[in-house]
């Protein structure tokens, strides 16, 4: 059987200047075609202005078992979230 086109992860930065966001995956023979395919598959409704593709096999992920140690410490840093701070109404919008 012929070899399958590798899998790519697709990241798109939308119209609003936010960071690139993972939108899904697709198959393509190389990076250049992965970009073209991503444009055709994932921006059919004007979703994006910039595309990144990464070979899925090149993604290094945190191990699921490390979920506790990696993420729980930041859970306790509630002060990083704006809702932690109680701003009196008379101060107005901040």
């Amino acid at each position: 059987m012929s070899s399958e086109w590798p899998l790519w992860e697709v990241f798109i930065r939308g119209q609003h200047g936010l960071n690139h966001r993972h939108v899904g995956s697709l198959h393509a023979p190389d990076a250049e075609m992965a970009i073209n395919n991503a444009r055709d598959v994932y921006t059919r409704r004007n979703e994006g202005v910039s595309i990144w593709v990464v070979r899925s096999s090149d993604i290094v992920a945190s191990a699921p078992s490390e979920k506790g140690p990696l993420f729980e410490p930041s859970n306790s840093k509630v002060y990083r979230h704006p809702t932690f701070f109680d701003i009196p109404d008379e101060v107005g919008h901040m």
Partner: peptide
């Protein structure tokens, strides 16, 4: 011949 091409050609 491939899903990605099917979608691209339709575009």
């Amino acid at each position: 011949p491939a899903l990605e091409e099917d979608i691209a050609l339709a575009n």
